[in-house]
């Protein structure tokens, strides 16, 4: 679907802005909101550019920069921290060969941090796109990343 088609699934009402942005971002292979997407959204909803931009930059789930195909969000809440999220992040950085905030050179993964994902009973946790991965340790991380790598090849 084109940007316009995605936007037109929603009524042209201001309160649909966040839902529209989610839909646009999810449909973008780089998992981000393009300038064109923001402009189209603004014009469809009758908003100014800044009102749309201000919203896009406020919420942490939205990105205005191209990201990888899979967004990894590692939980850094107090619980995950107690259960050693730090080592998880370091290990992910090592496995992916990138620092937190970066995107891997094959554009498959972007490594981000997240506030509490509400998975505290199975800490440490992370999300990759829509899926939650719990009770992480070094081994499971490697397996999970490998799984996504394979998945990307089979698509």
């Amino acid at each position: 679907m084109s940007i316009k088609e995605i936007i037109r699934q929603f009524k042209p009402e201001h309160h649909n802005l966040l839902n529209i942005m989610h839909a646009l971002q999810n449909s973008n292979p780089g998992n981000y909101l393009t300038k064109e997407a923001l402009e189209e959204t603004a014009s469809y909803l009758g908003l100014t550019k800044a009102s749309v931009y201000g919203v896009a930059t406020y919420y942490t789930m939205f990105s205005l920069e191209p990201r990888g195909r899979y967004i990894i969000r590692v939980c850094i809440s107090p619980v995950c921290e107690i259960i050693k999220a730090e080592t998880i992040i370091k290990h992910l950085e090592k496995v992916l060969g990138i620092k937190t905030g970066q995107t891997s050179s094959d554009r498959l993964f972007t490594l981000e941090l997240s506030e509490c994902l509400g998975q505290c009973h199975k800490a440490p946790s992370m999300m990759i796109n829509d899926r939650v991965h719990n009770c992480l340790d070094k081994n499971s991380i490697e397996e999970i990343i490998e799984e996504y790598r394979q998945m990307s090849k089979s698509d």
């Binding site: 800044a50 009102s51 201000g54 919203v55 930059t57 406020y58």
Partner: peptide, 9 residues
């Protein structure tokens, strides 16, 4: 006109 907004937080 509502041309301005905050950005980031």
């Amino acid at each position: 006109k509502n041309v301005l907004s905050f950005t980031k937080r």
